[in-house]
Design a binder for these strands. Structure first.
Ligand SMILES: [Mn+2]
Ligand SMILES: [Mn+2]
Ligand SMILES: [Zn+2]
Ligand SMILES: [Zn+2]
Lengths: 124, 124
DNA sequence: TTATAAAGGCGACATCGTCGCATTACTTAG
DNA sequence: CTAAGTAATGCGACGATGTCGCCTTTATAA
């Protein structure tokens, strides 16, 4: 299963790089120049997640948002940082703040999904 | 808008009290004795959330889970504790571990949604 | 250039949560 | 106790989301 380079991959990655935020499929589709099928965008995004290029966040709206892995922990496959979703501008960004928690004996944590919702600095 | 006492309300609250976990609409519908419409269950749950009886958690599957407010923040605005979802038994529970974070200047946090996913002690 | 298989387009599907509207039933005033 | 007022419910429908199957297209290497 070797990856191939396609215009779609490149376009999606460019959008996410330029924005610097976590974006949903529909936001990417709206922002992207070329016309890409919805299912294809999801497949591209999920492939990037599998390859450790992106990571996925599920917000309170139940939607999936995808962001570049900048300094994410690759060895543990965890992205243990907080995310912030502004309810005004609707953008989601990765916060530098790390997630720290304690769990009961015998529990095994495999993934972390932490989203704070509110108003960002530019919107307040 | 005064609340009324109905068999539906009571049944839903009983289910959630007995389980002691956070439950989704479909799980409640499956567990409940009487037959209640899907939309009605959601309306009951959302009303309970408005009244501060329940709180809502969105898991990585994008679904909403509802749990009793036991010792939640008295303002009923924030429920700043972690939640754990076992990928084996699919149950979600409220953890005692509080959510602590630092946020950039000018940001205002209004809600917290933190879900850890993995395997619980009974399933491991 | 050609064979191989990864990637994309398209349609379909299941799920989830909400809404509008007509009906039911809880509450309370009388 | 009865009846009016209105909260709550049932039902159908809807839009949004994410995935899958199948066939076609295309990137890549032999
Ligand atoms: Mn992130
Ligand atoms: Mn909780
Ligand atoms: Zn904002
Ligand atoms: Zn379990």
């Amino acid at each position: 299963m070797k990856r191939r380079n396609t215009p779609t991959k490149e376009a999606v990655l460019n959008i996410l790089t330029e924005s610097g935020k976590a974006m949903s499929q529909d936001a990417i589709e709206r922002k992207i120049a070329i016309d890409i099928n919805r299912a294809t965008i999801y497949r591209v995004l999920n492939r990037f997640c599998d390859d450790g290029v992106l990571h996925k966040v599920v917000a309170e709206d139940g939607k999936q948002y995808f962001a570049l892995c900048n300094g994410c922990d690759e060895t543990h496959q965890k992205h243990q940082h907080f995310h912030f979703k502004c309810k005004v501008c609707e953008t989601i960004e990765c916060l530098p703040s790390e997630v720290n928690f304690s769990i009961p004996e015998g529990y095994l944590v495999e993934n972390v999904n932490c989203v704070l919702t509110g108003v960002c600095d530019t919107c307040s």
